[in-house]
Amino acid sequence: MAKSDSIDWAAVIADPRFQQLHRKKMGFLWGLMTFSVVYYFLLPVGAAYYQDLFKVQVWGVINVGLLFALSEFVVAWAIAIYYSRVANREFDRLAAEIAADFAKRTGG
């Protein structure tokens, strides 16, 4: 195991930058998570209880149900890309700053 006592973890948590990272991440991650779960379960719920809507043909023989199922893929990919962009741009920068700072402070 790494020598965990070489870093003052309470100080990391108390650092304003860490608090900022924590707040941003929590709201963002659980918001996206809730949205994706809700959006996913709309598909089986719709297929079971809104069959008349799912059967409406909109593009040749292609109906709402098929388009909705295809949209699940697009939405999943969009969430993944959106999350990555935000994480790469904001979370990583904050995390790296904090990590560099504390690693230096303890000589690690």
């Binding site: 965990s4 870093i7 973890w9 309470a10 990391v12 948590i13 904090i98």
Partner: peptide, 11 residues
């Protein structure tokens, strides 16, 4: 504190 700091910072 240690778990939470490490998982978020990669320290």
């Amino acid at each position: 504190d240690e778990v939470y700091a490490r998982q978020n910072t990669g320290l």
